[in-house]
C-alpha cells in the first residue's frame, strides 16, 4: 500500500516540524518504505467486528476533585527556558494564526 515518495517524507517532516536534510530525505524515504510495507499487514488481519484497543485496562471515569494544588513558582516555571523576559517565555516572532 505504501510507496512513500521523497516529497511525501518532506511533507511529513514539515507537519512534524523537523528540518530534514536532503540526505535524510533519501535514507528516510527508503527506510520508511521498508518499515511501512512490513507494518502494512496489520490492515489484513482484523475485520470490522474487532474493536480497537486504546487502553490496556478498561477503566472509566477517573476524575480529580476541583481543588487547587500547589504548582510551580514563576522562577521554577522559567528555569528551563531558553529565553525569558518579564516573567514570560521569550520566543521568536510567531507567524501564522491562533487556531
Amino acid at each position: 500500500m505504501s510507496t512513500i515518495s521523497r516529497d511525501e517524507v518532506a511533507h511529513l517532516a514539515r507537519l512534524a516540524r523537523i528540518d530534514v536534510t536532503e540526505a535524510e530525505l533519501d535514507t528516510f524515504a527508503g527506510q520508511l518504505d521498508v518499515i511501512l510495507d512490513s507494518m502494512a499487514k496489520v490492515s489484513e488481519v482484523a475485520g470490522d467486528d474487532v474493536p480497537p484497543m486504546t487502553h490496556a485496562a478498561d477503566v472509566t471515569n477517573v476524575f480529580r476533585e476541583d481543588v487547587p494544588r500547589p504548582g510551580l513558582s514563576q522562577q521554577q516555571a522559567l528555569s528551563g527556558a531558553p529565553a525569558a523576559e518579564d516573567g514570560r517565555f521569550k520566543v521568536p516572532r510567531i507567524l501564522g494564526e491562533e487556531q
Binding site: 507537519l15 511501512l36 502494512a40 496489520v42 488481519v45 482484523a46 484497543m53
Partner: peptide, 22 residues
C-alpha cells in the same frame, strides 16, 4: 505522523489497535 494522518489512520493506527485486541 504518517500513520495518524488523514486517509491512513484506519489502515495503520486503527488496524494496529484492532490487532491489540486480538
Amino acid at each position: 505522523t504518517y500513520a495518524l494522518s488523514a486517509g491512513y489512520y484506519d489502515a495503520y493506527y486503527g488496524s494496529a489497535q484492532q490487532v491489540r485486541t486480538l
